[in-house]
Simulated scan of single mutants.
Amino acid sequence: MTRPSSRTFTERLADGVMIGAEGYVFELERRGYIKAGPFVPEVILDEPEALRQLHREFLRAGADVMVALTYYAHRQKLKDVGRDGQLEELNRAAVRIANEVAAEGGALVAGNICNTWSYDPANPVASGAVVREQYREQLTWAVDEGIDFVIAETNDFVGEALIGLEVCQELNLPAVVTFASVQPGKTYDDHDYIDACKRLADAGASVVGFNCSRGPETMQPMLEKLRAAVDIPIAAQPVPYRTDAATPAFESLTSAGGGRAFPIALEPFAHTRFEMAEWARRAADLGVQYVGICCGGAPHHVRAMAEALGRTTPASRYSPALDLHPVLGTPADTSAQGVMGDWSAAPV
């Protein structure tokens, strides 16, 4: 089919920093279209207009890529919710919707595969065959509908990531391969994260890096090491939450009362748009070529990040103009600023 963009993924990446916007599953759950727990994107079939609208909002905010919402749209996860009979229908529809919206702004379209929960490092041959088949069927449908490249993300195992990359290569698709750094130091199959990325780079990935799990502050040191370790483009898609050295991954964050914050009580840990904008500048200055956001990300984050990188987006027409606020825009009245803080000093 005709591609929305006349430029290939490799050509676009060579132009400069690309902005990726994800977090579809979390955002659609907040909007009432996906069930927390299984996090299967049934919205694709049940409420396609809701997905179409979120794609459009990310596009208007400055995203260079529409990612087909096929995260957790593999056979095992659909079986969990009793919809494995609609696997092909769901996957094809997700790519079609991404293509429709991408065409509105000349964006690229990414197919998407992710951690399957089917891979077992103790039995890599048998479990790997199951994973390979799930990836093959998803990506074969995606290629048929039309994609520019693949994001193979939230990998916990090097073995599973390599299978995903091999399937991409079978189908002649450029691959962005990213690891979720849930554990300190090493993947679930005991590989140092930097070495894991190097293995994927050596195996032919177009881009390697990290997504999900870590917020900007705990992902940044890993990015610095990775940038020095590989000579191909790198990607970073952190979650917009305040992780720290004591709790580097957001899956382990706990509320003030000691309860689990992940996945649906994370609001107290959320970064502002200004903080994500400042991180986007830092990432670009480091040499991260694919700068994005993951679970928890929303269009206002993406717009602020794009503007921090010097872009004016369609959504910039509605960027904040607090000087026009009836209280905050009145210099003589500082009471509101005392409560709200000095917005003029916030990063733009």
Rank of each mutant, 00 (worst) to 15 (best):
L286Q: 09
N99I: 00
A249F: 09
T8W: 07
R303S: 06
P48N: 08
W279C: 01
A21W: 12
A277K: 08
T178N: 06
A256E: 15
H191P: 00
R31Q: 15
P299K: 01
G16T: 11
E267Y: 01
E224Q: 11
H300L: 02
C212K: 02
V81T: 09
F179S: 01
V125L: 06
V348T: 13
A126T: 08
S118I: 05
E100V: 01
V43C: 09
R60Y: 10
R281F: 07
G106C: 03
T178E: 11
A73C: 09
G329H: 10
E224G: 00
T254G: 01
A103V: 00
D120M: 02
F269D: 05
W141D: 11
E49N: 05
A61V: 07
A280F: 11
R56S: 11
T70N: 14
G257L: 02
T312W: 04
I234F: 05
D190Q: 10
A261F: 01
A298H: 14
P174G: 06
Y188T: 00
E166Q: 13
A103M: 02
A14H: 03
M222R: 08
Y33A: 12
Q183H: 12
R52C: 13
R136F: 13
Y71V: 06
G159V: 05
G204M: 03
K77I: 03
R227V: 03
L90K: 06
E217I: 00
L59Y: 02
A93I: 00
P263D: 10
R214C: 01
R132C: 13
I234E: 13
R75W: 14
M66T: 04
M305W: 08
P124E: 11
D202S: 04
E88Y: 05
Q53W: 08
A283Y: 14
A236H: 09
A346D: 10
G185R: 10
P326S: 13
L171G: 10
A304C: 01
A68E: 13
V327H: 08
V17G: 07
R214A: 02
T2R: 12
G296K: 01
A142H: 09
L286R: 08
Y71W: 13
Y71T: 06
W279N: 07
I113H: 08
T140V: 14
G185N: 11
Y135F: 15
L266A: 03
S344M: 11
F262V: 00
A36F: 14
A161Y: 14
R273H: 07
E47K: 05
L69Q: 05
L266V: 04
G16V: 07
Q138G: 06
K225D: 13
A161N: 12
G310T: 10
D285E: 15
A14W: 00
R132L: 11
E224T: 10
S319P: 00
A261R: 03
P4V: 07
H55N: 09
Q134F: 06
W343Q: 07
M276E: 07
E166R: 12
G258A: 03
A256H: 04
L69N: 01
G296Q: 02
I34H: 12
E29G: 03
V130P: 00
S6G: 14
P299N: 04
A336P: 03
D120Q: 05
D244Y: 12
V302K: 09
P299H: 04
T140A: 15
A345Q: 14
G297D: 06
G329T: 08
N99E: 06
G20K: 06
I97E: 08
R31N: 07
G204A: 05
A235D: 00
K186I: 15
V158W: 09
G341V: 04
V302R: 07
R282E: 15
